[in-house]
Structure formats: C-alpha cells, structure tokens
Nucleic acid binder design. Sequence first.
DNA 1: CCTACCATGTAAGACGTTACATGATTGG
DNA 2: CCAATCATGTAACGTCTTACATGGTAGG
Lengths: 197, 197
Amino acid sequence: MSLRYALLALLRVGPKSGYDLQKQFDTSVGHLWHAPDSQIYPELRKMEAAGLIEGEEQVRGTRATRRLYHVTPAGDADYLAWINGPLSYARVREPASLKAAYLEAADEASARAFLDDHIAHWQGELAQWEAELERVDAHGTPMLRERLAVTPPEDHARVVAFKRLGYENLVDRARAEIAWAERGLRLLDELGYPPRG
Amino acid sequence: MSLRYALLALLRVGPKSGYDLQKQFDTSVGHLWHAPDSQIYPELRKMEAAGLIEGEEQVRGTRATRRLYHVTPAGDADYLAWINGPLSYARVREPASLKAAYLEAADEASARAFLDDHIAHWQGELAQWEAELERVDAHGTPMLRERLAVTPPEDHARVVAFKRLGYENLVDRARAEIAWAERGLRLLDELGYPPRG
DNA sequence: CCTACCATGTAAGACGTTACATGATTGG
DNA sequence: CCAATCATGTAACGTCTTACATGGTAGG
C-alpha cells in the first residue's frame, strides 16, 4: 500500500509519466522504497481508476505517446490522510536473524561466509544511503530541487530535515547490521570454530 | 521461502503436528519469523508433497486425528543446503522511513503521533525480545530444552550462543528505531513545529 | 455440561518478483 | 545507421494477510 503513497508523493511536486516515476524508483525514492516498472505501470492505472490521479496522453514524435499523470484533489486528500494517519506495522520477518539463530547446523566456512556477506550487503546499502544524504544536504538531487522549487522558502529547511531523517533511519540500520555481524564473527572465534565432528 | 526452513528447524528436533508448530510461531520462533496457521498447514502439505517431511495420521480420542510430521533425509539435506548456502537479501522497503522523509506534509500532532507510535511499537517488540533472551539464557523455553536434549553437551554453548545472536540482532534493531524516533521528536522541537500557515 | 484447548483447513485478495514482450525516438 | 534511452505494459508465480469455517477432546 506504500507504493501508492510513494507515487503520490512524487506526483505532488509536478506531473510525471510512468517512466519518469520509474527512474525515481531506481535512484532517490528507490533507496527508501523499491518498486519495479512492472508494478508501477499497473498501479498508476489502478490509481487513475480510483480517481486519485489523472493521465493525459501526449504525442511524442510521430507515432509514440506518453501518459503524463497529475494528482487530483481526491488524490491529494488521500495522500494527506496517509501522512497524517497511523502506520500499520508488519510482523517481524528477519531471514538473517532466523538463520543466525540456527547457525549451529552450519559448518565453519558457511557461518563465516554468511556473516561476511551480511557485512558486505549492508556496507553496500550504507554507501548508497550516505551518498544520498550528502546529495540531500547539497540539494543535489533533481527531485529535491523540483520539490524545493514549489515549496515556500521558509519551509525548505523542514523539507530537507525530513528527507535526512528518513535516510538516517536506514543509515542507522545498516550500521547496526554491520556491527552485529562483526560481533557474530568474533563469536565464531570465541566458540573455537571449527572443531566439530 | 524462510517459512519452510523455520518449520524444518523445528521439526528437526523431533516430530510435531501443525498445531504444535503453530504454537511455536506464536511464541519462540514467532519472535524471529511470524506465520499464521493458514500459512503453516498448507506449507506442511507442500513440504510433504516435495518429500521433505512425512506425516503420520494419529488417532486422538474416538473420532479425531492429528498429523505428526517428521523430517526425511531429503528434508534434512535441504535444510543443510539452506543453512550453508547464501541468503538472498530483499530490497529495502521501509514504510516508516518513507513516511518520515515526507513528514513536511503532516500537521504537528500527526507528526508527533507518528514518532510516538513508532517508539511504542518498537518498545513493545524490544520487551518481547529481551524477555526471550532471558529465557534463552535460563534455558527456559520448551523448544530450547527439547533441542538441547538431542544435542551433545559439548555443543550446548554453541546452540545457546547462536540463539542469542539471532535475538540480539532484533534487540539492536528495536533500540536503534527507538533512538531514531526520539531524535525525530527533538527535530520537531527544533523546527519549531507547528508554526505553519 | 461447559469451557478451554486441540486440530485442520479453505478462499479471496493484496502485494511483490521475475521473466517476457514490444516498439519509437533522439543524438551522434 | 546505430546505440542509448524513452515508453509501456502482460503473464505466471509465489508469498502473506484476513476472514471464514468446522469440529473433537479433556478436565473440572
């Protein structure tokens, strides 16, 4: 259900095509919420059917078209209801914690590889999010510039601060995952892996 | 796909019925990986069809039965392949970060309520996980006792240490979420919320 | 007898992934 | 003319949630 609101958030700063939106999901918002094109196009159609957005067919060259969407008042109201309403939390489902809890069945190399991979994975994510934070601070992303352009100057600091807040959560998360996996590696040392069987 | 391995992990310590497993998902493993009964029963049937487990119909009273499942050699091999193999990481999809990043559209009360709820939610999770950690240390859960009973004594420390590791990840996560939301609340103060419009 | 617990599912729908599929336009 | 990019989907499948549905047994 968040996909819908991520799309509305982007469309609220100005009209966009499915392709425009999809590119944002590959870069800026995509670091917060990923979605593939195969999910975006159908969702836009559903949102249009629900009256939240309206699409306008535009000519492109001689034969091609593109569909530019904009938010309707109903869509705006729906977005505000979402941002002002409560968030429902999904039950925890952590494959890495699950696996860690049963790691006694793994051999040494695999246990180490699991934790090494975990560190590598979250370091990759961390690098992306930290880079995005820097771009946010420098007002360096196209979407942010577009948004600030339609925002009164006295609200700019607020907009930037909340973007930071969102990404900081992910940065904290990545750091915690890395620290945890490093502790896991030390645990393997302490347990005197591999002296089984 | 982790559901299957969570179930195998539980079945590997001894035969169990769908109902037995379901209860574990409400308590011990359920803190790592949640699944409702409506998912567990069909999954057990699929696993049986795949030859990973075998079910035995048992008489209960005069008319009722229960189906006791045990792991087959193929199931054991599949489990070991999972625990020794790489974990595939899902793309990030964090509703709370997404919402935080767009909080400028919310009014003050809603913004505070969002962060307060976030703290309350993760404090609830934290309490459960810390309680589970204490039970693990005290060997106080039925599943853990059952598991240790079928584990050579020299491996007991290992088993307990990995259970701890799994839960510690979640505890770390909860603490980070709480600290982040508290920072968010201070940010609202600094931004001088609510002086809009 | 009645209540708590044991026991097992189906059905509909939302959400998400992966693969497949196609074609036009723009700039060099 | 060719490559990069623009542009938009469908199909199949798997996972997960929510709601619905049913009945037996054991202990007090």
